[in-house]
Design a protein around this nucleic acid. Structure first.
Lengths: 161, 161
DNA sequence: TTTTAGTTGACTAAATCATTCGGGAATTGT
DNA sequence: ACAATTCCCGAATGATTTAGTCAACTAAAA
């Protein structure tokens, strides 16, 4: 699990698409303008998002990107995973070819931490994030625990070789 | 919040010190050998850990590093923060000089996500991680919720200018 | 057939990561 | 006083990642 600004950009852009893409596809130029993210950078990110099945593209005039699945079935984790590719980095590559006597500590350790953080990011959907953007007047009650009980969710299915 | 192998190295090393430093200070050479981390890299990391008040150093023969505070009062978050310096990167620098109409979305959004992840990392102490390493025989029950109710904790006090 | 907009790939500058090197300074033991 | 040990510090390095740019291309619409 990696957690950098790259993933943030992707999530931000996805929220933008979710918010403005209800009628027609959203063009990257529009996202770029609204979110102040470089157009070409967005192109890279959306290339990955598309290949991971998170968005669909429409070419030509009036084209742009749409969410491939309803916003409440896409988690923050899905988005981050799509752009920030895997990396496990437990140093013992996930196997137990560690060394010495005991298996290298970091093994279970980071797996557990990752699992937790990941579980959370998986529980937050785009729909919730969009919902929090809507109330323009009135105070935003900071992002309290809106997470729902685990429910089956459409998963990005293709990992092109 | 950033989450990379750098922070992992630091936590791993801190666990090593916590485990082997009960009698005498732990030398970085020993940590390097046991955890297979480059000595010079450890020196860099421990320089930061020391400046943040997480470890104390003893020079000369028989010297090395000791935890500056008991292992159950040091959280994973403390360690990661010490080496992976701040970075907020909400793009609007934390202030609301964003642009446009609404304040840039990412603001509250990532603050909230960060807060949660951070809360978790702050709830896991070195002592717990050490405890999980001890049972050499018998299965390790994967890192279930061992976290204790919030308790006041010694905080790294100095940020040298 | 021109315009819009996605698609792809290569390329770049800057930052970060992980590591190495070299020379210090403090402490211990002789 | 001297040598060994260990921390301390800064600079340099190569590899990777970030973030951004550029240019050429394809598909669809008007």
């Amino acid at each position: 699990m990696r957690l950098t600004t790259k993933g943030r950009f992707a999530v931000t852009a996805m929220i933008d698409v979710a918010m403005h893409g209800t009628q027609a596809p959203v063009t990257l130029a529009a996202v770029s303008e609204r979110q102040k993210i470089s157009l070409s950078y967005l192109e890279q990110l959306f290339g990955k998002l598309r290949r991971h099945g998170l968005v669909e593209s429409v070419r030509g005039p009036g084209g742009g990107y749409n969410l491939a699945h309803p916003a409440d079935s896409v988690s923050v984790a899905d988005v981050i995973l799509a752009v920030d590719e895997p990396i496990d980095a437990t140093q013992c590559g996930g196997r137990e070819n560690c060394f010495d006597d005991r298996r290298c500590m970091t093994h279970e350790l980071w797996a557990g931490l990752n699992e937790h953080i990941f579980g959370y990011l998986r529980s937050v959907t785009l729909a919730e994030l969009v919902r929090q953007q809507q109330p323009k007047s009135g105070d935003v009650s900071v992002l309290q625990d809106h997470r729902q009980p685990p429910k089956p969710r459409a998963k990005a299915e293709l990992l092109p070789s």
